[in-house]
Design a protein around this nucleic acid. Sequence first.
DNA 1: CCATCTTTGTGCACGCGTTCACAAAGACAT
DNA 2: ATGTCTTTGTGAACGCGTGCACAAAGATGG
Lengths: 267, 267
Amino acid sequence: MATGRTHRPATRSRGIPEATVARLPLYLRALTALSERSVPTVSSEELATAAGVNSAKLRKDFSYLGSYGTRGVGYDVEYLVYQISRELGLTQDWPVVIVGIGNLGAALANYGGFASRGFRVAALIDADPAMAGKPVAGIPVQHTDELEKIITDNGVSIGVIATPAGAAQQVCDRLVAAGITSILNFAPTVLSVPDGVDVRKVDLSIELQILAFHEQRKAGEEGSAPEEAAGAVPPPPAAPHRAPSGAPGADSGRQGPDGDVPAVMPA
Amino acid sequence: MATGRTHRPATRSRGIPEATVARLPLYLRALTALSERSVPTVSSEELATAAGVNSAKLRKDFSYLGSYGTRGVGYDVEYLVYQISRELGLTQDWPVVIVGIGNLGAALANYGGFASRGFRVAALIDADPAMAGKPVAGIPVQHTDELEKIITDNGVSIGVIATPAGAAQQVCDRLVAAGITSILNFAPTVLSVPDGVDVRKVDLSIELQILAFHEQRKAGEEGSAPEEAAGAVPPPPAAPHRAPSGAPGADSGRQGPDGDVPAVMPA
DNA sequence: CCATCTTTGTGCACGCGTTCACAAAGACAT
DNA sequence: ATGTCTTTGTGAACGCGTGCACAAAGATGG
């Protein structure tokens, strides 16, 4: 969902469809819950309901990983947990840096879900000198100046951006230059990255707007007027202006730092 | 992405494909930025790059809304902003409640993106009595007991769940019973909701795992062994156990409250 | 050892989403 | 008015993802 070719266009990575990959964590979570209850096996039907998907879809998903089930019985929970974990690369340790320690950054740092699955917060980074040294979630915040060194020294390949929108692209560029190849972006901006770098976006504002759309639809269809309410008709297309302003092809690409709303309330 | 038929299965709502709806906020953001720079018109090409999508896709998306462009010129920025806003239902005010005021809930409450687009935080709700009355982002936190009353009194139809995983389904049920029809869920759980209720999920853990998958792939393909490293072979399927445990069809559905990791560090 | 029953794994069809490529539409210059 | 040039809007092809429905596999009981 980013600019520079986010995920490769339908990269059926090693034969595993992107859509399937996106569901594996879901299965894994459900399986882990079962594992903790010491349930030895599950049928595709049971697991599917637990994960909130169709059982046929689940079976097809698993078929991409191999034949790990037993007909007439189901899937061995422990074994499947292991296989999915391995497939997702969770059997190894992934150091992660969080850049932008505002409200959201702090919340992420405190997030328990990190450690639980092979992810480890290697460092917290913020541009505010006043934050430096101050511990958040037991980890001292470091200044942006250290960014490159931190990444290199710890061999970090995954970065989380929780800065304001205006700083996001700049931070992104530095992360990428320092060797980061996967980015989780919470800032409301389109990041452009070179090929080979994956960007995933989490955008609260967008999610809400999508909900609003459906909400409006629900309200509208049972209500009264099928189309636009009676009210005043919106301004028409207006007379065409000429658009000689701005640079024709110059500063295109990344727009000004004053992009949109201030990201996610970072300090 | 939830249990109970999240979005209707490919609801081409009023002819507008779901995929298009999901991109409208992206266009809107880019257009708003242009508007603030007083740019009168944009071509599909320019706007597409700004939004990080293909220009053909953008044009097709807009074609679902109507013919708002002028051939040879492009799109009138202001007009398009208005049209998309209206389509997304952002011309009206959407009161929102946030349940679970922990680190994340607080971060969301402070999020500037709410007010900017028709969304208004109507109330903050938390189960911890100690939180009651304490102001977060200038809004006093109210106790869960008030939940139903708050929703009814304010006519809230959108709820944000930022509680621990264990409490999410319970909160969800109460929200729905109180009349909420759109939910944004930050808790790492599959929510089951009745038909007619939309659920959107934001799951940090899942996003990271997806990144890890691709990261592993990158490392693996340039590295050495194309398949599994030399290391010890994982445990084989193991001998099949019988699975008479648990309730056959009883307590299925929502699993125990001790689901997974503690959501998102909510107080 | 055979019959029955459960559950997986998948071939197939269908629909949505993406992309290409081009004709139609309009602006602009002469 | 006419020609040229730009940019939209969309018809059509293609590929991915989903879901159905069933044959194959294996467990279980007699």
